[in-house]
């Protein structure tokens, strides 16, 4: 058992036994060597289930939304990218600050389980693209820290127990390529772009995994939820899927924390982050560089304006 896992279990046991928190969200070892899925525990004995390694990719913050109407205090572990989701939920007033206990952990970079060739034999796997492009490997907010993790509200180098492993694996080494996919699509002709997205929207069958895992998608009632309202029903035609994809991208515009979970969970491998990154690229160019979910007191770009914003509509 690695050191981080040990510290996680000790802290969890302590928090649950003392009653400081009613529940704790973390990761546990899954049924195969390349799976470390989420787990929610409520008893100190259950702390034994907790585990952390390079497959603990899930952003746990979305699960906090299940507790937003209650008064229970819930603890959860966050990696750098996940912690931006906490700020997202707080800025959107979806959870009360006093009802969440954020525990920051250092991250060695998450491995790409799509590269597994032998389900029985552990092997070295490459990093996920989002980890290669990572700019926030350290938690941006935390109430407790374990294993040497340090809070940083700015883009930074990985810190803590996993720092050297993260550096060796290349966490953050491709930051400059963050918008590469966006630029590749922008370079296509209009018809090529449309054909590209049409092929993606033909695949989508509107399972809403992307929406349900996203910390920025936290509306009490999503417009896609009730077909009586008339916006969409469950019909999964390419045009309806395009409507869903673009509307969701615009609804999270300026609030997307780039955790990349939407793209990871899509069962059809749709490049959802291309849409979100396009919006982020444009926001940076038009309204100034900003990273959503890094500064609790910060303002979301589409929730404010400047008198001298670019003027193209006169």
């Amino acid at each position: 058992m690695n050191q981080i896992t040990k510290e996680m279990r000790d802290l969890a046991r302590e928090l649950l036994a003392s009653g400081e928190v009613k529940g704790l969200i973390g990761w546990t070892k899954g049924s195969r060597w390349y799976l470390t899925p989420p787990v929610v525990i409520t008893q100190p004995e259950e702390a034994e289930q907790l585990y952390f390694d390079q497959f603990a990719v899930n952003n746990l913050t979305g699960l906090l939304l299940d507790y937003r109407y209650g008064d229970d205090k819930i603890a959860l572990f966050v990696k750098g990218c996940d912690s931006r989701g906490i700020v997202r939920l707080l800025q959107d007033h979806q959870i009360k600050r006093d009802n969440v206990l954020v525990i920051g952990v250092p991250c060695m970079g998450m491995s790409d389980k799509k590269a597994v060739t032998d389900p029985r034999q552990p092997a070295e796997l490459p990093l996920l693209d989002k980890c290669l492009e990572c700019r926030y490997p350290n938690p941006v907010i935390a109430d407790r820290l374990i294993s040497g993790a340090l809070v940083s509200g700015e883009p930074s180098e990985p810190k803590g127990l996993t720092a050297s492993e993260a550096a060796k694996r290349g966490v953050g080494s491709k930051q400059a390529d963050r918008f590469a996919q966006v630029k590749a699509i922008e370079a296509m002709s209009a018809d090529e772009k449309y054909a590209f997205w049409q092929a993606q929207h033909e695949k989508c069958f509107r399972c809403y995994a992307c929406r349900n895992i996203c910390p920025a998608c936290n509306c009490r009632e999503c417009i896609f939820e009730s077909d009586k309202k008339g916006w969409v029903n469950k019909s999964a035609t390419p045009t309806d899927n395009a409507f869903f994809a673009v509307t969701r991208a615009m609804h999270v515009a300026g609030r997307c924390v780039e955790c990349g979970e939407c793209e990871r969970v899509c069962p059809m491998d749709i490049p959802i982050m291309a849409l979100n990154r396009k919006v982020i690229q444009d926001i940076n160019e038009l309204f100034g560089e900003s990273d959503a979910g890094t500064d609790l007191d910060g303002k979301m770009p589409l929730g404010l304006f400047k008198n001298d914003d670019p003027e193209e509509f006169m």
Binding site: P37, P38, V39, V40, G62, L63, D66, F205, R206, C207, Y208, A209, R211, N212, I213, V265, P267
Partner: peptide, 11 residues
């Protein structure tokens, strides 16, 4: 507790 209530499994 950890289910997202998406439609991935059913679809």
């Amino acid at each position: 507790r950890k289910c997202l209530n998406c439609g991935t499994c059913a679809y």
